[in-house]
Design a protein around this nucleic acid. Structure first.
Lengths: 287, 287
DNA sequence: GTTCCGCATGAATCGATAG
DNA sequence: ACTATCGATTCATGCGGAA
């Protein structure tokens, strides 16, 4: 299982040129939202957002394999009491560049930012816009199947608890195998709404999105050994997950602190894997 | 409690002209999606959708009160493997006409249409796009508050007891006022994701959306006696709900069958109300 | 070892105040 | 008039210490 993680320090507009054409299976990224991250990408003004993103989108199109997918996590800000239109304009612009707008997934955030205003409710969803280079792209739907509705879920829960108790008195009866059959039959294909909580107050790293989010799309659009690209790496959630899932990955980050933090993190992770191999492999022999 | 329901038979583009300016508090509608309802509005081609809707949007803007709200339920079709862009273009066009794009709610359908395709999942959400005529509009947020999450509820209960004790030792510090705020907090404001089930297999009428959907927005944006308009009435869900909720309403429908069906339905409903009044009012006297 | 509670913390938004 | 900063508002979640 050979994986590699390549990290690039710099502005993705230029760093992307180092990546060969038709080489990436999945681009999953969350670019700085307009007027955010002032310290890094200069806090792009909403009105300039499309112009800023256009050359990057072109480079991304070049690097993606024809069978690959680009998932863009973004949400428009409120500006002067209205939702700003730069995301809508961005989608139209991307199509002009040659991207296909295949789908729009919704990330329904279980725990969204609090607050109260006279004219609007809390914003609890973000866009996950799926673009493709061609109509034929890889999609591994079975990898993200979910347990069926609450009815089946609760029933299974009780069933399995009963079975646990029964299992003590029925060792080796082959009953467990039936259960696993049940489990597989109660799975269904998901929809285009992903319902996940954000990971806040995580001491070590505060990411824009939870690991489960890139994990879901990496499972859906890549297989082991494929290449995942995140041109706006940030704290590196996408890259970390890709690495854990045995995908090759390329991350680009403009802030040195983030870059070096993740570089060290990945190196430690590799070391840990080596250690574990060193620890567990021999003990297994002693059995 | 005087309510009225006015039903108009015809193309809303012309029928809307009969409605006075600045007279409507809420427009809630689900227009025929592109290429749907071929028999009625001629199955508007996706590429012509914005042009077709523009004059209607202008008329709607005229009829709405400055404090009113327009909620548009719509979702783009898949066309040639891509999501069509007519909804995005429509939003941009509406702003050119003078509408403010205040917010986009998501209707997350609990039970969405079944199906399986190799390149996409089932579509389980629709847009509920909120437009306004001015930045100051009526919004009755308390009307749609929801029970807090189980976790917060149990914790708050205990927290408030601690605070009660503290309150005894701090009389007159103005602290008590905050406490009473917290004590009554068993409900929370909702978010901009509305999570409702579709009404499937309703024998008599197949509506585009469940009654709970217009009900939520009617509660949120109008009070009793206000006027609700649905220019694409269809089977009349919005109008029926508005009538039940003691709002005045205006419905426009181009298909005679739908029009007469609802006309009869509303008349029967009124008759029922009269009957009930006739039955129960006298018995009350005998008590 | 559980369960319970206190606390910090968010890709937020508005309105007021200040340059 | 137009932009920049700041405080107030609010709620689900995970962590860590306590019973």
């Amino acid at each position: 299982m050979k994986t590699s993680t390549k990290l690039l320090l710099g502005d993705c507009k230029t760093e992307l040129k180092k990546i060969p054409s038709d080489s990436v299976d999945l681009i999953f990224t969350s670019p700085p939202y307009a007027d955010n991250r002032k310290d890094t990408y200069g806090g792009i003004h909403p009105d300039k957002y499309v112009d800023w993103f256009t050359p990057i989108a072109s480079e991304l199109l070049r690097t993606l394999k024809p069978t690959g997918t680009f998932v863009l996590n973004i949400k428009e800000k409120v500006s002067n009491g209205e939702r700003h239109t730069y995301v809508l304009e961005l989608i139209l612009q991307m199509r002009k560049l040659g991207w296909l707008w295949t789908e729009e997934f919704i990330w329904h955030k279980k725990n969204c930012y609090p607050g109260k205003w006279p004219n609007r409710f809390r914003d609890s969803w973000e866009r996950l816009i799926q673009f493709n280079k061609s109509k034929k792209f890889n999609m591994y739907q079975e990898e993200v199947m979910v347990p069926m509705g609450e009815w089946a879920k609760s029933r299974l829960k009780k069933l399995s608890e009963t079975d646990k108790r029964r299992d003590d008195s029925r060792v080796g009866s082959g009953f467990g195998k039936n259960i696993s059959n049940w489990l597989e039959r109660t799975k269904a294909y998901p929809t285009n709404v992903v319902h996940l909580a954000t990971e806040c107050s995580n001491k070590n790293h505060s990411a824009a999105f939870p690991e489960a989010l890139p994990e879901w799309f990496i499972k859906l659009f890549t297989k082991e050994g494929d290449t995942v690209l995140d041109p706006f790496m940030g704290s590196g959630t996408t890259i970390t997950v890709a690495h854990k899932m045995c995908r090759k990955s390329i991350g680009i980050e403009i802030v040195p602190d983030y870059y070096y933090l993740l570089k060290t993190g990945i190196e430690n992770q590799n070391l840990l894997l080596l250690e574990q191999a060193g620890v567990y492999a021999p003990t297994a022999k002693h059995k």
